[in-house]
Amino acid sequence: MTEYKLVVVGAGGVGKSALTIQLIQNHFVDEYDPTIEDSYRKQVVIDGETCLLDILDTAGQEEYSAMRDQYMRTGEGFLCVFAINNTKSFEDIHHYREQIKRVKDSEDVPMVLVGNKCDLPSRTVDTKQAQDLARSYGIPFIETSAKTRQGVDDAFYTLVREIRKHKEKMSKDGKKKKKKSKTKCVIM
């Protein structure tokens, strides 16, 4: 069974824990209790493949930012979460993405942009803004509501699919490099 290491990042209060708990335990946590770091595991079937999701729910508070490099190193894919009623959390996505790329030393890291709290009427981040940002990053965008469960499975499952595509691409690139290195030079 394939294991996928997913990391949920975003500013404090955007609903990272609520999304994760909704996926794992099928219930909505409405009281806000700032996370330092929590880890969850769940076995699911995605596109006919049974897999184990190892999900790291991270601290959004700035005082825990020193811990970010460590979990970013171990993560295979990242859910970059903002709240649709919090423009600052949307603007912060850029910083999370840049930090992930720096730590992973790669421009090509599996990510999904997630606009959470889409059940709320007080939207300050337009869907088109988020779609445009995701398009500019070359990553999928999904709106979710941890409260109603809308888009929750889709967000995590899409990230797994992005990781699969990335692994497939990397193995193809690896095979191309191996083929090239088999060419021999004969000096007579």
Rank of each mutant, 00 (worst) to 15 (best):
T2R: 14
Y4K: 14
Y4F: 14
L6S: 03
L6V: 11
L6P: 05
L6G: 04
V7D: 03
V8Y: 02
V8Q: 04
V9D: 04
V9P: 01
V9N: 05
V9G: 06
G10W: 01
G10H: 00
A11L: 15
A11H: 08
G12F: 07
G13K: 08
G13R: 08
V14G: 11
G15L: 01
K16R: 03
K16I: 00
K16A: 07
S17D: 00
A18N: 13
A18H: 06
L19D: 13
L19F: 10
L19K: 14
T20V: 09
T20N: 11
T20S: 12
I21R: 14
Q22H: 10
Q22P: 03
L23G: 13
L23Q: 15
L23H: 15
I24R: 08
Q25E: 15
Q25Y: 03
N26M: 09
H27S: 14
H27K: 10
F28W: 11
F28V: 06
V29L: 13
V29G: 11
V29S: 11
D30G: 11
D30P: 10
E31L: 12
Y32P: 05
D33S: 03
P34R: 03
P34T: 06
P34Y: 06
T35I: 00
I36E: 04
D38F: 02
D38W: 02
Y40N: 02
Y40R: 03
Y40F: 07
R41G: 13
K42W: 07
K42M: 12
Q43W: 06
Q43T: 12
Q43S: 13
Q43N: 14
V44G: 14
V44R: 10
V44D: 14
V44E: 12
V45K: 15
V45F: 10
V45T: 14
I46Y: 11
I46S: 14
I46W: 09
G48Y: 07
G48S: 09
E49F: 06
L52P: 15
L53K: 06
L53R: 03
D54H: 07
D54I: 03
D54W: 03
I55Y: 04
I55E: 02
L56D: 03
L56R: 04
L56T: 14
L56A: 03
L56H: 03
L56I: 15
D57R: 00
D57S: 04
T58N: 01
T58S: 09
T58C: 05
A59N: 04
A59H: 02
A59L: 00
G60L: 01
G60E: 00
Q61C: 10
E62R: 06
E62C: 06
E62N: 07
E62A: 07
E63G: 06
E63A: 06
Y64M: 06
